[in-house]
């Protein structure tokens, strides 16, 4: 959904290797690099970036309330949240410094599930089998994620989580993502 607020996303969520020529690196990934990959402290410049990040996110929060959301766009939003997990989070590339990918992963799944629960009454009328499948796959994925909980959060998504574990997570995301891609069709019927 953040992509729907075109000018904010690149300010808060850009990665170092995605910077265009002369583009200043801002947002949380820059701060994460300072904290986890460099000196474990924020420079004065970083602190200014942190203030700017808060301003940008508050601006984004305000705009969210005014966004026009249709049942189809909400269903597609849920699908896209899973897509983000499938392409950027299960690989560990997004949080390469902080290794908090599983926190994001869980956030995306919860967001997708919230959207799904809101659409479920309509979807269930049009496609009962799809709803049954989605209930099952959401439950399976959340159960798998629960195995990685650590205190209030999640284990670091680093070398301690090997290829076999990552493949299981990836398979579970695909298992949910495929039926979730049919939700928009079911609410638009």
């Amino acid at each position: 959904m953040a992509e729907s607020f075109g000018d904010i996303d690149p300010k808060v969520d850009v990665r170092e290797d995605s910077l265009e020529k002369d583009q200043k690196w801002t947002g949380w990934h820059k701060l994460e690099k300072s904290l986890w990959a460099e000196n474990a402290t924020l420079t004065d410049d970083d602190k200014k970036l942190a203030d700017q990040l808060m301003t940008d996110l508050k601006d984004w929060q305000k705009r969210v309330g005014t966004a026009e959301i249709t049942p189809t766009s909400m269903a597609n939003g849920a699908k896209e949240l899973l897509d983000e997990v499938a392409t950027g989070k299960v690989t560990g590339e997004e949080e390469r410094y902080s290794h908090t990918d599983l926190v994001d992963f869980n956030g995306n799944v919860e967001g997708a599930q919230k959207a799904y629960e809101l659409l479920k009454p309509v979807a269930g009328k049009n496609d009962a089998a799809l709803v049954k499948e989605l209930d099952q796959q959401f439950a399976d994925l959340k159960k798998l994620l629960d195995g990685y909980r650590d205190g209030d959060g999640f284990k670091a998504y680093d070398d301690s989580i090997g290829k076999d574990d990552r493949k299981k997570l990836s398979d579970a995301v695909n298992a949910l993502g495929e039926p979730l891609s049919k939700l928009a069709g079911a609410v638009a019927k």
Partner: peptide, 9 residues
């Protein structure tokens, strides 16, 4: 493979 997702990987 796509048809199989959720049942096989």
């Amino acid at each position: 493979a796509r048809i199989g997702m959720g049942k096989v990987a």
